[in-house]
Design a protein around this nucleic acid. Structure first.
Length: 581
RNA sequence: GCUAGUGUGGCUCAAUGGCAGAGCACAUCACUCGUAAUGAUGAGGUUGUGGGUUCGAUUCCCACCACUAGCUCCA
């Protein structure tokens, strides 16, 4: 640890601070509920947690008691002492802690087995730590929640209780953090989706969202944007059927790997499946005719609606649903074209995210254990993705074994309002589907060759992307996406006729315009339009009617002054076409 | 699916083992108003669903459904 930097600016210090907080949590639990067994308790991005196995259910009231005990431990200023033990003695020391025993047994032969002791509490731990519990500011500790978590992340093993907490060096920092979380919740797309009347999900269809008129505007604008982008990038568009014969899914390999997540139906006594992915349909479309190497790369897009049976507990607003639209694309290509095609897709996705102002990170997911291809292809394909990322200076983290069953992938992850990340874009390299479907093209040598495929999405799913967009903009969508772009608000009925004239002109100009003719005060109309985050409000009173002008107000509360309708129309049309926020 | 919690008009939330209440929204009427809430009146709920305990359940118990947080899984 950098001895000169005892602040959270130093990630090592922050980590040690939170890790020590986690040990204090465990010590407090041990004092209050001695029967509790301890699993692991690391520091994480926003704080720390400890996984425990206990008779006690850690309700919010119990957490408060534990918090109080944690503050006591901080006051006691217990020194943390590190010591090491040979394996046998370590196991003896931890003999009443079955989870620790398992951890010790799984350590490699030559591993150093170290412990940290603070007062009456000792924990198996590699460290590092603060030198005393007194270093932790007691009143800047907060236990935030208790949830279930599988021991060792394995859903077949016991579910433990995970107690989440966070800690800071000052109480003000804790308060600021808690307030930030509260603020972020106001941007939750589920809340905004209801308030802005974008979408709904009912008990009759968990995971199957309804898109309401305003949400449909977002969808349609996004889809138009997607079509135009892909037209420019040299893609063709197809639409493949939602229901196809079950046999297809055996051929594609989805049956073995994915049938738990699929929905089925019978037609004329035959078994059919509702597609969970678009690629097999895309394969059939490719196979409709012979191709020449001159046709490659062949880029084919599809806004494909897929259905997947997700576990009920995994559903989450629009972010995780059971029916969604992938902005799918398949590229069929030769080996020589691979690098440039992959790079082209990376740049395409990057340009989309940059346009919206998103921060994202890239993950390289390598082939999973149940990868269906050869070892040689596995290594080759993973290396291709790695090379493209590295030669183009893209930063990424590796996610071992998280690729598709047919190949490795590059994933793009976007953040939601409270910092959870969601995979949106993906680029998957696939040597397997072309093999299984016996795809071919004729090379310059007159011989048949097998193309290589990329599966890719940029937005990911339209549904998830709308969720992310909603949170990113807190519902104040850029003008080109805004469900209602202009709200006309006459101050009195005397301006009604003029308002109707303005409305018609804007409507005819293709602007999404609405008018509020209710007998309400102008302040009230403005308040409602503000809450609906409508970008432009036209306030029309006697003065404007007389001068044949419009008074323009923005949702940022700005008064843009009065102007002619022509100037206003020109202004917003240019703003719409620039697609700028 | 798992662990814990939650479920009361469209929304946000009260209340209680004994006739279910408020604010906002909605409707009607009045008001015609200059940049974030005009007033009055009215309508709207078998308290998620199904069982059980009880003289009586929205409240207590059980099951199921849905939602929330997290785990697992994933776009």
């Amino acid at each position: 640890m950098d001895e000169n930097k005892y602040t959270f600016d130093n990630p090592d210090f922050k980590h040690a601070y939170r890790h020590t907080s986690s040990h204090i949590l465990a010590q407090a639990i041990k004092r209050l509920y001695p029967e509790t067994k301890f699993a692991i308790g690391p520091a994480i991005d926003e704080g720390f947690y400890y996984d425990v196995d206990s008779e006690t259910v850690f309700t919010p009231e119990v957490l408060e008691k534990i918090e109080a005990e944690m503050r006591n431990i901080c006051k006691e200023k217990l020194p943390l002492e590190r010591f090491e033990l040979p394996r046998a003695e370590a196991l003896e020391l931890m003999r009443d802690e079955p989870y620790k025993v398992e951890l010790i047994n799984d350590l490699p032969e030559d591993a150093v087995i170290s412990f940290y002791k603070q007062g009456d509490f000792t924990d198996l731990c590699a460290g590092p730590h603060m030198d005393s519990t007194g270093r932790i500011k007691g009143n800047a500790i907060k236990l935030t929640s208790c949830t279930g978590a599988y021991w060792r992340g394995d859903s077949k093993r016991k579910m433990l209780q995970r107690i989440y907490g966070t800690s800071f060096q000052k109480k003000e920092e804790l308060d600021a953090y808690l307030e930030r979380i509260e603020e972020a919740k106001k941007r939750d797309h589920r809340k905004l989706g209801r308030e802005l009347d974008l979408f709904m999900i009912t008990d009759e269809g968990p995971g199957f969202p309804f898109f309401l008129p305003k949400g449909m505007v977002l969808r349609n604008e996004l889809e138009s944007f997607w079509r135009e982008l892909h037209r420019q990038c040299g893609y063709q568009e197809i639409k493949t059927p939602m229901i196809l014969n079950e046999e297809l899914w055996h051929r594609s390999g989805h049956w073995d790997k994915y049938k738990e997540n699929m929905y089925f139906t019978k037609i004329d006594g035959e078994d059919y499946a509702i597609k969970p992915m678009n690629c097999p349909g895309g394969m059939l479309a490719y196979k409709r005719r012979p191709w020449s190497y001159k046709d490659l790369p062949l880029r084919v897009g599809e806004l494909g609606v897929v259905h997947r049976h997700e576990l009920s507990g995994a559903l989450h607003g629009l972010m995780r649903v059971r029916c969604f639209t992938q902005d799918d694309a398949h590229i069929f290509m030769t080996r020589e074209q691979m690098h440039s095609e992959i790079l082209g897709v990376i740049n395409k996705i990057d340009s989309v995210y940059r346009m919206f102002g998103f921060n994202y990170h890239i993950e390289l997911s390598t082939c999973p254990p149940n990868f269906i291809g050869s070892q040689e292809i596995r290594e080759y394909s993973e290396n291709v993705l790695r090379e493209v990322l590295e030669t183009n200076g893209k930063e990424y983290i590796v996610n071992p074994g998280d690729g598709a069953f047919y190949g490795p992938k590059i994933d793009f992850h976007l953040e939601d309002a409270i910092g959870r990340t969601w995979q949106c874009g993906t680029i998957q390299l696939d040597f397997q589907m072309p093999e299984r479907f016996e795809l071919e093209y004729t090379g310059a040598d007159g011989e048949k060759h097998r193309p290589i495929m990329i599966h890719t999405v940029a937005l990911g799913s339209i549904e998830r992307f709308i969720g992310i967009l909603t949170e990113h903009f807190a519902g104040a969508f850029p003008l080109w996406l805004a469900p209602v772009q202009v709200m006309i608000m006459p101050i009195t009925d005397r301006s009604r006729e003029y308002s109707e004239e303005i409305y018609k002109k804007l409507f005819d100009a293709g602007i999404r315009v609405e008018a509020d003719y209710r007998s309400e005060k102008i302040g009230y109309k403005i308040r409602e339009a503000q809450l609906q985050k409508i970008p432009y409000m036209l306030v029309l009173g006697d003065k404007e009617t007389e001068a044949r002008l419009v008074a323009v107000r923005t949702r940022l509360g700005g008064d843009e002054g009065t102007m002619t309708l022509e100037d206003f129309t020109e202004k917003i049309k240019s703003e719409i076409s620039s697609k700028k926020n």
